[in-house]
Protein backbone atom coordinates (compact mmCIF):
# COMPACT_ATOMS: atom_id res chain seq x y z
CA UNK A 1 0.00 0.00 0.00
CA UNK A 2 1.45 3.35 -0.90
CA UNK A 3 0.06 6.51 0.56
CA UNK A 4 1.40 9.93 -0.12
CA UNK A 5 1.77 12.32 2.76
CA UNK A 6 2.69 15.97 2.85
CA UNK A 7 5.49 16.96 5.17
CA UNK A 8 6.94 20.35 5.97
CA UNK A 9 10.71 20.18 6.17
CA UNK A 10 13.17 22.88 7.15
CA UNK A 11 15.21 24.06 4.23
CA UNK A 12 18.96 24.31 4.16
CA UNK A 13 20.37 27.70 3.27
CA UNK A 14 18.72 29.44 0.35
CA UNK A 15 20.36 31.78 -2.07
CA UNK A 16 19.51 35.43 -2.42
CA UNK A 17 18.38 34.83 -6.00
CA UNK A 18 15.88 32.22 -4.88
CA UNK A 19 14.47 34.64 -2.36
CA UNK A 20 14.18 37.35 -4.98
CA UNK A 21 12.49 34.99 -7.42
CA UNK A 22 9.93 33.96 -4.82
CA UNK A 23 9.28 37.59 -3.90
CA UNK A 24 8.62 38.53 -7.51
CA UNK A 25 6.37 35.50 -7.98
CA UNK A 26 4.42 36.34 -4.83
CA UNK A 27 3.90 39.92 -5.99
CA UNK A 28 2.62 38.67 -9.33
CA UNK A 29 0.29 36.35 -7.43
CA UNK A 30 -0.99 39.19 -5.28
CA UNK A 31 -1.71 41.32 -8.32
CA UNK A 32 -3.49 38.44 -10.07
CA UNK A 33 -5.80 38.07 -7.07
CA UNK A 34 -6.27 41.84 -7.08
CA UNK A 35 -7.37 41.49 -10.70
CA UNK A 36 -9.99 38.94 -9.67
CA UNK A 37 -11.26 41.39 -7.03
CA UNK A 38 -11.60 43.98 -9.80
CA UNK A 39 -13.88 41.64 -11.70
CA UNK A 40 -16.11 41.43 -8.63
CA UNK A 41 -16.14 45.21 -8.45
CA UNK A 42 -17.25 45.27 -12.07
CA UNK A 43 -13.97 46.56 -13.50
CA UNK A 44 -11.93 45.12 -16.33
CA UNK A 45 -8.72 43.88 -14.70
CA UNK A 46 -6.66 44.90 -17.71
CA UNK A 47 -7.90 48.45 -17.34
CA UNK A 48 -6.90 48.26 -13.69
CA UNK A 49 -3.37 47.14 -14.51
CA UNK A 50 -2.91 49.75 -17.19
CA UNK A 51 -4.20 52.60 -15.03
CA UNK A 52 -2.09 51.36 -12.15
CA UNK A 53 1.08 51.55 -14.20
CA UNK A 54 0.23 54.78 -16.00
CA UNK A 55 -0.70 56.67 -12.89
CA UNK A 56 2.32 55.55 -10.94
CA UNK A 57 5.37 55.36 -13.19
CA UNK A 58 4.60 55.61 -16.88
CA UNK A 59 3.70 59.30 -16.85
CA UNK A 60 5.99 62.07 -15.57
CA UNK A 61 3.19 63.51 -13.52
CA UNK A 62 2.41 60.09 -12.02
CA UNK A 63 6.05 59.45 -11.28
CA UNK A 64 6.28 62.77 -9.43
CA UNK A 65 3.33 61.84 -7.25
CA UNK A 66 4.82 58.42 -6.58
CA UNK A 67 8.11 59.97 -5.52
CA UNK A 68 6.29 62.35 -3.18
CA UNK A 69 4.72 59.36 -1.42
CA UNK A 70 8.06 57.58 -1.35
CA UNK A 71 9.48 59.77 1.43
CA UNK A 72 6.90 59.10 4.17
CA UNK A 73 6.60 55.41 3.29
CA UNK A 74 10.37 54.93 3.23
CA UNK A 75 10.79 56.46 6.67
CA UNK A 76 7.94 54.36 8.12
CA UNK A 77 9.55 51.33 6.50
CA UNK A 78 12.82 52.11 8.29
CA UNK A 79 10.87 52.52 11.50
CA UNK A 80 9.38 49.05 11.06
CA UNK A 81 12.76 47.52 10.22
CA UNK A 82 14.36 48.93 13.36
CA UNK A 83 11.74 47.46 15.65
CA UNK A 84 11.28 44.13 13.84
CA UNK A 85 15.01 43.43 13.81
CA UNK A 86 14.74 43.33 17.60
CA UNK A 87 11.53 41.23 17.45
CA UNK A 88 9.61 44.17 18.85
CA UNK A 89 6.28 44.49 17.12
CA UNK A 90 5.71 48.21 16.70
CA UNK A 91 2.74 48.43 14.35
CA UNK A 92 1.70 51.93 15.34
CA UNK A 93 3.87 53.80 12.81
CA UNK A 94 0.75 55.60 11.62
CA UNK A 95 0.17 57.03 15.09
CA UNK A 96 3.81 58.04 15.51
CA UNK A 97 3.65 59.67 12.08
CA UNK A 98 0.66 61.77 13.17
CA UNK A 99 2.26 62.78 16.46
CA UNK A 100 5.54 63.58 14.70
CA UNK A 101 3.70 65.94 12.37
CA UNK A 102 1.87 67.50 15.29
CA UNK A 103 5.01 68.20 17.30
CA UNK A 104 6.71 69.53 14.17
CA UNK A 105 3.76 71.86 13.65
CA UNK A 106 3.86 72.93 17.29
CA UNK A 107 7.53 73.79 16.91
CA UNK A 108 7.27 75.39 13.47
CA UNK A 109 4.08 77.34 13.91
CA UNK A 110 3.90 78.25 17.57
CA UNK A 111 7.15 77.74 19.50
CA UNK A 112 9.88 78.91 17.12
CA UNK A 113 8.14 80.57 14.17
CA UNK A 114 11.00 83.02 13.52
CA UNK A 115 13.98 80.69 13.23
CA UNK A 116 15.96 81.09 9.96
CA UNK A 117 16.10 78.25 7.40
CA UNK A 118 19.00 75.90 8.02
CA UNK A 119 18.21 75.82 11.73
CA UNK A 120 14.48 75.57 11.10
CA UNK A 121 14.90 72.30 9.22
CA UNK A 122 16.89 70.85 12.08
CA UNK A 123 14.16 71.87 14.50
CA UNK A 124 11.56 70.36 12.18
CA UNK A 125 13.29 66.98 12.09
CA UNK A 126 14.14 66.93 15.78
CA UNK A 127 10.61 67.90 16.81
CA UNK A 128 9.14 65.16 14.63
CA UNK A 129 11.62 62.62 15.95
CA UNK A 130 10.96 63.56 19.55
CA UNK A 131 7.17 63.38 19.14
CA UNK A 132 7.09 60.03 17.36
CA UNK A 133 9.86 58.64 19.52
CA UNK A 134 8.17 59.45 22.80
CA UNK A 135 4.87 58.10 21.48
CA UNK A 136 6.50 54.72 20.81
CA UNK A 137 8.64 54.89 23.93
CA UNK A 138 5.48 54.83 26.05
CA UNK A 139 4.67 51.42 24.57
CA UNK A 140 8.23 50.23 25.23
CA UNK A 141 7.89 51.29 28.86
CA UNK A 142 4.58 49.46 29.18
CA UNK A 143 6.24 46.37 27.75
CA UNK A 144 8.99 46.47 30.36
CA UNK A 145 6.90 47.45 33.37
CA UNK A 146 3.69 45.52 32.77
CA UNK A 147 4.70 43.03 30.08
CA UNK A 148 1.95 44.20 27.73
CA UNK A 149 2.42 43.14 24.14
CA UNK A 150 3.73 46.21 22.32
CA UNK A 151 1.76 45.36 19.18
CA UNK A 152 -1.46 45.98 21.07
CA UNK A 153 -0.37 49.19 22.75
CA UNK A 154 1.16 50.72 19.63
CA UNK A 155 -2.11 50.06 17.81
CA UNK A 156 -4.15 51.67 20.56
CA UNK A 157 -1.79 54.63 20.65
CA UNK A 158 -2.51 55.06 16.94
CA UNK A 159 -6.16 55.57 17.82
CA UNK A 160 -5.23 58.06 20.51
CA UNK A 161 -3.13 59.94 17.94
CA UNK A 162 -5.98 59.87 15.45
CA UNK A 163 -8.39 61.41 17.96
CA UNK A 164 -5.82 64.03 18.93
CA UNK A 165 -5.35 64.88 15.24
CA UNK A 166 -9.08 65.46 14.93
CA UNK A 167 -9.05 67.54 18.07
CA UNK A 168 -6.22 69.85 17.02
CA UNK A 169 -7.71 70.29 13.55
CA UNK A 170 -11.19 71.09 14.78
CA UNK A 171 -10.55 72.83 18.09
CA UNK A 172 -7.13 73.52 19.52
CA UNK A 173 -5.14 74.75 16.52
CA UNK A 174 -7.98 75.39 14.14
CA UNK A 175 -7.32 78.16 11.69
CA UNK A 176 -10.51 80.26 11.55
CA UNK A 177 -9.51 81.51 8.09
CA UNK A 178 -10.64 78.20 6.62
CA UNK A 179 -14.37 78.08 6.77
CA UNK A 180 -15.99 74.70 6.35
CA UNK A 181 -13.13 72.27 6.29
CA UNK A 182 -11.26 71.87 9.58
CA UNK A 183 -7.61 72.79 9.16
CA UNK A 184 -4.87 73.98 11.48
CA UNK A 185 -2.57 76.96 11.30
CA UNK A 186 0.36 76.49 8.94
CA UNK A 187 4.04 76.05 9.54
CA UNK A 188 6.05 79.26 9.27
CA UNK A 189 7.22 79.64 5.64
CA UNK A 190 10.92 79.04 6.42
CA UNK A 191 9.98 75.56 7.62
CA UNK A 192 8.44 74.56 4.30
CA UNK A 193 10.40 72.06 2.24
CA UNK A 194 10.48 71.41 -1.46
CA UNK A 195 10.06 67.82 -2.55
CA UNK A 196 13.78 67.63 -3.26
CA UNK A 197 14.56 68.94 0.20
CA UNK A 198 12.43 66.33 1.92
CA UNK A 199 13.91 63.59 -0.27
CA UNK A 200 17.42 64.76 0.63
CA UNK A 201 16.63 64.65 4.34
CA UNK A 202 15.03 61.22 3.93
CA UNK A 203 18.13 59.90 2.19
CA UNK A 204 20.31 61.34 4.94
CA UNK A 205 18.14 59.58 7.53
CA UNK A 206 18.34 56.37 5.49
CA UNK A 207 22.13 56.53 5.44
CA UNK A 208 22.33 57.27 9.16
CA UNK A 209 19.95 54.40 9.93
CA UNK A 210 21.91 52.05 7.69
CA UNK A 211 25.13 53.06 9.40
CA UNK A 212 23.73 52.55 12.88
CA UNK A 213 21.94 49.29 12.14
CA UNK A 214 24.40 47.61 9.81
CA UNK A 215 27.74 49.07 10.83
CA UNK A 216 27.69 49.55 14.60
CA UNK A 217 27.02 47.42 17.61
CA UNK A 218 23.52 48.92 17.93
CA UNK A 219 22.35 46.63 15.14
CA UNK A 220 23.98 43.65 16.81
CA UNK A 221 22.17 44.51 20.04
CA UNK A 222 18.86 44.49 18.17
CA UNK A 223 19.64 41.09 16.68
CA UNK A 224 20.70 39.68 20.03
CA UNK A 225 17.48 40.86 21.63
CA UNK A 226 15.49 39.10 18.91
CA UNK A 227 17.32 35.88 19.79
CA UNK A 228 15.89 35.94 23.29
CA UNK A 229 16.42 37.57 26.66
CA UNK A 230 18.83 34.95 28.02
CA UNK A 231 21.31 35.14 25.16
CA UNK A 232 21.08 38.93 25.25
CA UNK A 233 21.81 39.00 28.97
CA UNK A 234 24.70 36.55 28.59
CA UNK A 235 26.30 38.74 25.96
CA UNK A 236 26.03 41.81 28.12
CA UNK A 237 23.08 43.43 26.38
CA UNK A 238 20.52 44.84 28.78
CA UNK A 239 17.15 43.84 27.29
CA UNK A 240 15.17 46.68 28.84
CA UNK A 241 17.64 49.29 27.64
CA UNK A 242 17.56 47.94 24.09
CA UNK A 243 13.77 47.78 24.13
CA UNK A 244 13.58 51.42 25.16
CA UNK A 245 16.04 52.84 22.71
CA UNK A 246 14.89 50.77 19.75
CA UNK A 247 11.27 51.69 20.38
CA UNK A 248 12.31 55.33 20.60
CA UNK A 249 14.42 55.07 17.46
CA UNK A 250 11.63 53.30 15.63
CA UNK A 251 9.03 55.86 16.70
CA UNK A 252 11.39 58.72 15.90
CA UNK A 253 11.77 57.55 12.29
CA UNK A 254 8.00 57.43 11.87
CA UNK A 255 7.78 60.84 13.55
CA UNK A 256 10.30 62.32 11.10
CA UNK A 257 8.18 60.84 8.32
CA UNK A 258 5.17 62.83 9.57
CA UNK A 259 7.18 66.03 10.00
CA UNK A 260 8.70 65.86 6.50
CA UNK A 261 5.39 65.06 4.86
CA UNK A 262 3.78 67.99 6.62
CA UNK A 263 6.54 70.38 5.61
CA UNK A 264 6.75 69.20 2.01
CA UNK A 265 3.00 69.33 1.32
CA UNK A 266 0.44 71.75 2.67
CA UNK A 267 2.17 72.83 5.87
CA UNK A 268 -1.03 72.48 7.89
CA UNK A 269 -2.82 69.49 9.37
CA UNK A 270 -6.27 68.26 8.48
CA UNK A 271 -8.21 65.18 9.60
CA UNK A 272 -7.27 63.46 6.31
CA UNK A 273 -3.56 63.76 7.12
CA UNK A 274 -3.50 60.10 8.18
CA UNK A 275 -3.80 57.99 5.05
CA UNK A 276 -1.96 54.84 6.06
CA UNK A 277 1.71 55.44 5.17
CA UNK A 278 2.56 53.79 8.46
CA UNK A 279 0.89 50.56 7.48
CA UNK A 280 2.40 50.76 3.99
CA UNK A 281 5.79 51.09 5.68
CA UNK A 282 5.23 47.85 7.59
CA UNK A 283 4.49 46.03 4.36
CA UNK A 284 7.52 47.54 2.68
CA UNK A 285 9.67 46.37 5.60
CA UNK A 286 8.62 42.77 5.03
CA UNK A 287 8.91 43.15 1.30
CA UNK A 288 12.59 44.15 1.64
CA UNK A 289 13.18 41.35 4.16
CA UNK A 290 14.14 43.87 6.88
CA UNK A 291 17.21 44.98 4.92
CA UNK A 292 17.80 48.72 5.11
CA UNK A 293 19.47 48.96 1.71
CA UNK A 294 16.51 47.42 -0.11
CA UNK A 295 14.01 49.60 1.73
CA UNK A 296 13.85 52.32 -0.98
CA UNK A 297 12.90 49.77 -3.64
CA UNK A 298 10.18 48.17 -1.54
CA UNK A 299 8.87 51.56 -0.44
CA UNK A 300 8.74 52.68 -4.04
CA UNK A 301 6.40 49.81 -4.90
CA UNK A 302 4.11 50.74 -2.05
CA UNK A 303 4.26 54.39 -3.12
CA UNK A 304 3.07 53.27 -6.57
CA UNK A 305 0.03 51.75 -4.92
CA UNK A 306 -0.82 55.04 -3.27
CA UNK A 307 -0.32 57.19 -6.32
CA UNK A 308 -2.56 54.96 -8.39
CA UNK A 309 -5.35 55.04 -5.81
CA UNK A 310 -6.80 58.37 -6.85
CA UNK A 311 -6.55 57.56 -10.53
CA UNK A 312 -8.40 54.29 -9.95
CA UNK A 313 -11.12 56.20 -8.17
CA UNK A 314 -11.39 58.84 -10.85
CA UNK A 315 -11.14 56.64 -13.97
CA UNK A 316 -12.67 53.36 -12.88
CA UNK A 317 -14.93 54.56 -10.05
CA UNK A 318 -13.32 52.09 -7.65
CA UNK A 319 -13.12 53.19 -4.06
CA UNK A 320 -9.62 54.14 -2.94
CA UNK A 321 -10.02 51.66 -0.08
CA UNK A 322 -9.25 48.87 -2.51
CA UNK A 323 -5.62 49.94 -2.13
CA UNK A 324 -5.75 48.76 1.50
CA UNK A 325 -7.11 45.41 0.40
CA UNK A 326 -4.37 44.99 -2.21
CA UNK A 327 -1.76 45.96 0.37
CA UNK A 328 -3.15 43.29 2.65
CA UNK A 329 -2.82 40.79 -0.20
CA UNK A 330 0.78 41.84 -0.87
CA UNK A 331 1.63 41.42 2.79
CA UNK A 332 0.11 37.94 2.86
CA UNK A 333 2.00 37.01 -0.30
CA UNK A 334 5.31 38.32 1.03
CA UNK A 335 4.81 36.46 4.30
CA UNK A 336 4.21 33.28 2.37
CA UNK A 337 7.61 33.83 0.76
CA UNK A 338 9.10 33.79 4.25
CA UNK A 339 7.54 30.40 4.77
CA UNK A 340 8.92 29.00 1.54
CA UNK A 341 12.44 30.30 2.12
CA UNK A 342 12.55 28.58 5.52
CA UNK A 343 10.63 25.40 4.76
CA UNK A 344 9.86 23.19 1.84
CA UNK A 345 6.93 20.92 1.31
CA UNK A 346 7.88 17.37 0.42
CA UNK A 347 5.68 14.49 -0.58
CA UNK A 348 6.54 11.31 1.24
CA UNK A 349 5.56 7.96 -0.20
CA UNK A 350 4.98 5.36 2.47
Amino acid sequence: MTRIRIRIVRRERTTRGFHLLLTVLSLIGAFLIAGVLMIFLGVNPLAFYSIFLQSSILTTWGLQITLSYLVPILLCCLSAIVSYRAALWNIGQEGQYIIGAMTALAAGAFLFPNVPPPLSYIILVLAGAAGGGVWALICGLLRIVSEINEAVTTLLMYYVALQLLNYVCRVAWRNPAFVGHPETYSLAPQYMLSFGGSLAIAIAVLVITWFLIDRTKLGLELDLLSEGFRVAQYSGVKPSRVILWSMFFSGALAGISGALYLASTSGFLQPEFSVGYGFAGIIAAWLCDLKVLYAPLASFLLAMMYSSGHALQACLHVSIDIIDAIEGLILMAVLTVHFFTRYKIVLVRQ
Partner: peptide, 26 residues
Protein backbone atom coordinates in the same frame (compact mmCIF):
# COMPACT_ATOMS: atom_id res chain seq x y z
CA UNK B 1 2.71 28.27 7.46
CA UNK B 2 4.09 29.10 10.95
CA UNK B 3 4.19 32.80 10.21
CA UNK B 4 4.37 35.66 12.65
CA UNK B 5 0.95 36.21 14.24
CA UNK B 6 1.14 39.98 14.40
CA UNK B 7 2.05 40.58 10.79
CA UNK B 8 -0.33 37.89 9.51
CA UNK B 9 -3.14 39.45 11.54
CA UNK B 10 -2.29 42.87 10.20
CA UNK B 11 -2.44 41.54 6.64
CA UNK B 12 -5.88 40.02 7.21
CA UNK B 13 -7.03 43.24 8.89
CA UNK B 14 -5.90 45.43 5.99
CA UNK B 15 -7.38 43.06 3.45
CA UNK B 16 -10.72 42.88 5.24
CA UNK B 17 -11.06 46.58 6.00
CA UNK B 18 -9.98 47.55 2.49
CA UNK B 19 -12.36 45.12 0.86
CA UNK B 20 -15.33 46.05 3.05
CA UNK B 21 -15.02 49.77 2.41
CA UNK B 22 -14.14 49.36 -1.26
CA UNK B 23 -17.33 47.41 -1.86
CA UNK B 24 -19.22 49.45 0.72
CA UNK B 25 -18.67 52.78 -0.97
CA UNK B 26 -20.59 51.69 -4.04
Amino acid sequence: LRLNHIVSGLAVAMFGVGLAYAFGRS
